[in-house]
Every structure is written in structure tokens, then in C-alpha cells.
Amino acid sequence: MSSRALIMGRIRRALADTPRAADPAAEPVARDYRRTHGDLDSAEAARLLAENLADYRAVVHRCDRAGLPELIGSLLAERGARTVIVPEGLPESWLSATGAEPVPDLAEDTPRVLDARDSVVTGCALAIAETGTLVLDGGPGQGRRRITLVPDHHICVVRVPEQVVCSVPQALARLDPTRPLTWISGPSATSDIELDRVEGVHGPRRLEVILVQDGPPAKEPPPGE
């Protein structure tokens, strides 16, 4: 007998005396919890997002669309970045005021090549205010998962208000499970020494989040549109 058949047989014997419907869907689970905590308008949601990101040591900046290239340029310069990874689909204008050398996210790059890069700039799929979380799904302007992992400095741009949701339930409803997803809540950290939180282990030790307020329409459409 295959182990699959063996295990399935064990499960069915174990449940032999347990009453159950033929179709699990006939036994729905009660979900009395809330979809969101608090009734936030979009400005409040953005504020809560900023607060929670900062609470976990992400560095939060705000600007309008016109000011974005300058802000990205100055953050990279401050960091002394010589190279910056640019994922496919990132609006060209974002790096128009940057002195660092832009390098593409290539499938054939080895991890060692990535390790030699200074910074990476990406967009995101959405951000969750209640938990201070950014979610990347590999869509336009986000790149492969590893480019936001190996370099030590990550700048992530969130479009406010349309990319901000309040809660985890709202986020899951908007995400596509077939895409590889990375949820990021602050720079990497550990609680492994005396159960006390220390920031900065394997992922980027500096995480900067730019909340771009959608002002009057700019010349170029935002990514994904």
C-alpha cells in the first residue's frame, strides 16, 4: 500500500465515529470577527500605516508625486548608494533625479551579484494600516522576491490612498494567491536573544517607505495602470 493510501485510511478510521457532512462546504464556520478595527477614512488609514511602520523601525517619508524623484534621489545619496536595483515596470521618472547607477533585476544574476548591490527601489501591491505591513506580489515595479532581500537598503513606494487597506482581511481579499507574496512589516528583526526584539538580521537593515500622495495628475501614470 502506498503511504498516501495508508495515511488516508488512518484518517478515515480516526474519523469513523465523527458525524460529518459529505461536502465540507455544507458546514460553514462562524466568522463573528470584524473586517476592520475602527472606521478609518483614507487619511486616517495612511496615518496609522505610517505610525505602525515607524513603530517597527521602518523610516517613513511622505511626498506628492512631483516630489518623488527628488526624495528617492536624496535617500539614495544619503545612504551613499553606488548601485540601485530597478525592477521591471518601475516608472522611469522615479529614478530621474538619482545619481546611483541603476541596474536591472535579471534572472541570471547570482545571489552574489545581488549581494554587491547597495540599494533597491520598488513599489508594492498594497499596504495594511492596522499592522504596518507592505505586501509585494512580483507585479510591475516590484521584481523578484530576492531583490528586496539581499541588498541592505530597500526603498518601497506606496501610493496613497489607493494602495492602503485597513486590515488583514481586506488585504487577503485583494491579493492573488497564485503570485509569490512577501509581507514586510519593518526591517528584519529577531527576538531570539532573551525574547527581546533587535532589528537587523538577514533582510535589509534599512527599510524606507515613501507614502506618495496622489496629487493633481502627473505627466506619467503610476505603475500597474
Partner: peptide, 12 residues
């Protein structure tokens, strides 16, 4: 005891 842990990976 965090609102969310720093990293969550999901793959299919």
C-alpha cells in the same frame, strides 16, 4: 507579541 511579524512568505 507583534502586530505582524517582520516577514511572511507565501508561495504556490
Amino acid at each position: 507579541a507583534e502586530r505582524m511579524n517582520p516577514y511572511t512568505s507565501m508561495w504556490t
